[in-house]
């Protein structure tokens, strides 16, 4: 190695150190340390009101053996699954409409941005508005009474899993639209035209060509919506009623009123593993999918 190149290497290393030492320390302190600590606490034991540093699996065993806890876990997965399916059923026609039916690029961009914008706009307000829509004194009920479909306000709309699923579907639809739109837009129009030129009908073309080519987008969309809705604790608490506790609600309770941080940490770790597991899996499938498509 020449003198000059060694000098260059040293200067580069110095530049890197100057640039990145601060941020590296910051990331280690405020992100790595807290996550590591929570992982450690999930093995602590609880002797009310203190938690004792320990290494035992009691918290995790509790989660999978006690009825009240694993019901919550299963419910979370079930609700997240329904939310993802419903979001998919609504987002696919919308994305298809945007990509294939709207022809003017400007109008399409405008409608796409209009679809995505609610995603960034006050989560809480959007969740809360469903309370005003579905409530006993709410808009839906007063509308039904106004047009004479019912005399008594219907109690069934709010404070149950139905309300929770509607609200969360509404909140997370944009996360489904984004990847679906991207994967539909990538499909070469020539493929679809070739299929039609060969006399294949619309539906068959859709099932044989369009749908399979959007599988990566569908996976990403499901991953987003599923992970986000399993981890939500605001919407369930707002519109879910008594039988709608989700994993995230239990974590919040354990870190709040119940004051059992080890158990809360164990539950948070489970949530973390579920989310990371799904993200990794879908990433892997998406990659193999991409290879198959070529």
């Amino acid at each position: 190695m020449s003198e000059a190149s060694r000098d260059y290497g040293r200067r580069r290393a110095l530049g890197f150190a100057a640039l990145f030492t601060g941020p590296a320390l910051w990331w280690a302190t405020v992100l790595l340390a807290p996550y590591a600590l929570m992982f450690a606490i999930s093995f602590y034991s609880k002797q009310f009101p203190f938690m004792i540093p320990d290494f035992q699996f009691g918290n995790y065993i509790k989660l999978f053996s006690e009825n009240q806890y694993y019901t919550v876990l299963l419910r979370s997965l079930k609700v997240a699954f329904f939310v993802s399916c419903l979001a998919f059923a609504l987002a696919y026609p919308l994305s298809y409409f945007l990509v294939f039916i709207v022809r003017r690029p400007r109008l399409r961009l405008f409608l796409y941005v209009a679809t995505i914008i609610p995603l960034w706009v006050s989560y809480l307000l959007r969740a809360y508005t469903w309370k005003t829509i579905l409530g006993t004194e709410g808009i839906l009920n007063s509308f039904l009474i106004l047009v004479g479909l019912t005399d008594e306000p219907v109690q069934l709309f709010l404070y149950n899993q139905f309300a929770m699923i509607v609200t969360m579907t509404y909140i997370y639809i944009p996360f489904m639209v984004m990847p679906l739109y991207a994967s539909l837009e990538k499909i070469p129009r020539s493929l679809i035209e070739a299929s039609k030129d060969c006399g294949v009908g619309n539906l068959k073309t859709f099932l044989r060509i369009t749908l399979p080519l959007t599988v990566p987008g569908i996976l990403v969309g499901f991953t987003f919506t599923f992970c986000l809705s399993t981890g939500d604790f605001i919407a369930p608490q707002l519109v879910g009623g008594p039988y709608s506790n989700m994993v995230a609600n239990v974590v919040a309770t354990q870190f709040g009123i119940a004051n059992n941080w080890p158990l809360g940490s164990a539950f948070a770790m489970i949530l973390l593993f579920i989310v990371l597991g799904i993200v990794t899996l879908s990433d892997k499938f998406e990659r193999t999918g991409r290879l198959n498509v070529g």
Partner: peptide, 24 residues
């Protein structure tokens, strides 16, 4: 690893970041 690690707070439910920082 860093690239994936940095976006964890956006990937994971916000509450996980919240409780772990609370503990910290």
């Amino acid at each position: 690893v860093l690239r994936r690690f940095v976006i964890l707070p956006l990937t994971l439910p916000g509450l996980i970041t919240g409780v772990s920082m609370l503990a910290f």
